[in-house]
Design a protein around this nucleic acid. Sequence first.
DNA 1: ATATTTCTTGAATGGCATTCAAGATAATAT
DNA 2: ATATTATCTTGAATGCCATTCAAGAAATAT
Lengths: 180, 180
Amino acid sequence: MPRNKRHLETKIKKEEIEFVAMALLKQKGYDNTSMAEIARAAGIAANTIYWYFENKDDVLISVLNRVVAQAMKELSEQREQPLRTKLLSLIAQVESSGSLMTDVHSRVSHSPKIQAWHDRFHTMVEQLSVSELVNAGVNPLEALLDAKLLIYVIEGLLAHPHQPEEREQIIDQALKHVFA
Amino acid sequence: MPRNKRHLETKIKKEEIEFVAMALLKQKGYDNTSMAEIARAAGIAANTIYWYFENKDDVLISVLNRVVAQAMKELSEQREQPLRTKLLSLIAQVESSGSLMTDVHSRVSHSPKIQAWHDRFHTMVEQLSVSELVNAGVNPLEALLDAKLLIYVIEGLLAHPHQPEEREQIIDQALKHVFA
DNA sequence: ATATTTCTTGAATGGCATTCAAGATAATAT
DNA sequence: ATATTATCTTGAATGCCATTCAAGAAATAT
């Protein structure tokens, strides 16, 4: 038990790496960010990362968890807002993380861990959406299907560039259908 | 002009490479298929590919064009079918090309040529969808928005594993909304 | 002070897309 | 028929990458 200080410093160092990795991955995406680059930005040797993380996908997962935690926090601050506002703010949130979500999709087939993370994330968003929809008066029987539709629309919006107005138009159209 | 024979053989060889590349890319995806592997399957040296194609993304584009051409052909054979049938058959089509569409999305940020291909493909599908929708009685003013919604739903279905029944449920739900 | 665990690193390793320079083959010109 | 040129092919680099390895430094425990 007197390894406390050591443990603490280890955790801090790991967080430091996650921090610089997050900045780089958000900015340049997974494929355009090398481990060497992350290491350089963190002021350590390239292979030192492997003491703290199993591999590059592991770094990505840690970063993703941070991004999601942040998004959740922002979302919880909008509890009173209508669904439309929540969705737009969620999109803005995720968008600020660059291509990270696209990166997740493209790495699902390479890494079982990313696959698992992706699945967990999807069911989480799905549950959130269903409860939102039911809350907003959608027939519970259809809420699950509508949730999936909404998620795919959101993913589509995130994966493709859009003007803010166009994005809002599309979201509004989707919501109109769902609430019709 | 008497270089005819040479030109013909060149075209044939290029097509041979595209053919084996298509099989490999469909089966194993972009990242898990190396140029060396394609070359081996085509019975040539690894670097010979670079006489016929600029780079790996160029190979991907040629393969994509073949896949799309095939899908278009199948689609045109369903001219009389309802939209639902067309969509399901389109999904089945694209699905048989493995992760190729996901690969496109993940390479958009790496290659301007892939980016351009992706944009062209999207507007094409969009135009097709709009005319389908208008034909099927959707208000023309909303057809464009609905087309985008449908495309994103289809992309979502393709990017995520689904049981056939679930897929149909989701498509039906989307169509119900669009035609409501 | 010594042994043990924890952390760090320089130097591999193996895989990859791509390039280079030189050779082979075929088409054309003389 | 021979020489010249354009077309195709290849073995051998090059440079980048994630990841591993073995050995050393630092902190902790005995």
